[in-house]
Amino acid sequence: MRDPTFWILARATGLTAYTLMTVAVLAGLVLKSRPFGRALKAASVTDVHRFLSLLALGAVAIHGAALVLDSTVKIGPSALLVPGLAPYRPVWTGFGVVSAELAALIVLSFSLRGKIGAKAWRKLHWATYLVFAAATVHGLGAGTDSAHSWAFAFYLAAVGSVVFATAWRALTRTPRPTTQGGTRVRDRDRSLAL
């Protein structure tokens, strides 16, 4: 009988990676909108955001490795790098490959901020929305469990929370302390700039 260990591992790490990425994105969005005010220290949220992003990438790496090691579907190492090369649901798995590669680039860019500059780094960070969208499409299209109602509810909750947090960040102003000495805080930068 075929050993289902790697197949189950691949499915579990896929969902785990998606969960970690969603929470990482939410932590990133909280950095700007600060819905919890002073209760959360900005630098600590950054640490959580970075740590969860790395954990998500780690889960993606296990997800890919498990798919190569599993024999349910024939996925070679090259299919993990080239979108559309996997014989199993090639379009949907392709979304996963693009999402993972872009995510790796964004995580790597944090360490390269000194070289690429803060502005370019912030622009690249916008691609996180593409990563999230591609991962969602990948999960819904390629995921074995996506036909279940619980899986649909899971993706709906993730997308809903990210859309809500994005809207919150776009619409709410950064909490500002009462300024002293008649200093007025300039009313600017209410945009979505990171």
């Binding site: 700007k32 900005a42 803060a118 502005k119 912030r122 200093t183 805080v185 300039r186 930068d189 990171l194």
Partner: peptide
Amino acid sequence: CSGFAACAELAPDVFEVDVGGK
């Protein structure tokens, strides 16, 4: 510094973000 500009928002008389985004 990653150019979040939170400092310049809160205390614009003390902080500013330069052309390099820092």
